[in-house]
Write a protein that binds this DNA or RNA. Sequence first.
DNA 1: GTCTATATACCGATAGAC
DNA 2: GTCTATCGGTATATAGAC
Lengths: 249, 249
Amino acid sequence: MEPRDSMSFDEFKQLAMVSMEEMCREIFKENQASIKIKKEAVALKNLARIFNTTLRLANEKGFQTMSLRDLSRASGMSMGALYSYFSSKEALLEMIQNRGRRLTRKILSRLVDPAQDPAAKLETAIRAHLYLTEVMLPWFYFSYMETKNLDKIQQKKSIESELATERMFIEILDEGKRQGVFRVADCVLTASVIKAMLQDWYLKRWKYTRRQVSVDDYAGFVIDFVESAIHAPLAKRPEEKGGQDGSRG
Amino acid sequence: MEPRDSMSFDEFKQLAMVSMEEMCREIFKENQASIKIKKEAVALKNLARIFNTTLRLANEKGFQTMSLRDLSRASGMSMGALYSYFSSKEALLEMIQNRGRRLTRKILSRLVDPAQDPAAKLETAIRAHLYLTEVMLPWFYFSYMETKNLDKIQQKKSIESELATERMFIEILDEGKRQGVFRVADCVLTASVIKAMLQDWYLKRWKYTRRQVSVDDYAGFVIDFVESAIHAPLAKRPEEKGGQDGSRG
DNA sequence: GTCTATATACCGATAGAC
DNA sequence: GTCTATCGGTATATAGAC
């Protein structure tokens, strides 16, 4: 699929679902040494179930607190069966982290379009990031909350991934500043607070759900807010009368 | 101490330290039923040590993962001694949460000044919130990360506290909008992203430390960014030439 | 008031029946 | 390929010496 200026959330979801299956297969093939199950169809189905159940339980009470007996109960698989799919609790965590990071990279790399101007790039990046975290919400929440419980190597990978995303925003802002379309006092700090706003979407999801704010609502708001703060050209905005709300979508 | 337009971080710190001791005494007196130690001086000293050590360990590896043996080792107190200060691990957690919430309320309530105009109020609120989280950084980080592990009652208190802070920002924005000094499309969402930016300060502290961004640097940046986004009168800003960075002191 | 020693329960992980 | 039964280790919490 070609990278495009504006992809709807439903299109994005379709794209992500395909990648999700693809990624499970990759993980299975890489870990075939430690996975005792040989039939791919069975393995993929159960791996997906294990991953999803783990994310759900871990997001309720923490990965360390979740016992494998909890996982066994919730997934409907016995302890013995579980250990046919991973060699240890830590190995399970690594597989989940791996799948998430890989999926993130794959999807984001498809959506970058170097031909766009900085303002359009910024909008695309914000929207893509929100769509991505929406589709993979349990993983992003999990990854954020459990980073400090990972071993040093995995921690480093998480931090690197975090900084890479931030760097993408820094570069967009830098380019816009050079071209004179953005008025940014500090690109690094600006990128940092943009990232904070984007992360709030999956960290405080209960709040937005309760208030019936959709991902497109939030994306539209953040894009307007940021563009307004850095005095970007307000491309798509209809008009601006004093103090009235301009709902977007 | 009178509420003032601009309090320096050092002044704020002084104020907070006094409240911190005060709060430990209150906690001690309230829990005297379950605390076996009777001498106030001994109890306060050890309670502070237990709280601080717990926050440090829990922020390294999570509260549930931190065993009381870890706490015993790190605090230099035996298991038996620890249980003279709290009746269970969960009770310890409740005391810590209680102290933090109470301290937060006490300090914030002193800094509200209804006489200020909306723009000044907004600046004061942003700065006070950042100063507060800076002084009580371990607790705020702990509280954010452990909320989901609390029982339902404590969870509800945390959420309530979170929404109360947000409501403060909503009211300031609403007032500014009514007076025509702010141009805000959606006060609730705006307050929400302001809060996200403020929380990033204690959630990603390693990043800001590494980049040598001080709390005053960050406060200045966020205030400028938000005021710029909502087109507030740029009271204290010196001048605005195209695209140059206006670092703020 | 603080210590060591211990009771009881549950953890991750594995062996072996089916 | 999935199950049950069980291992050794460690968790919270407590009892009793000093």
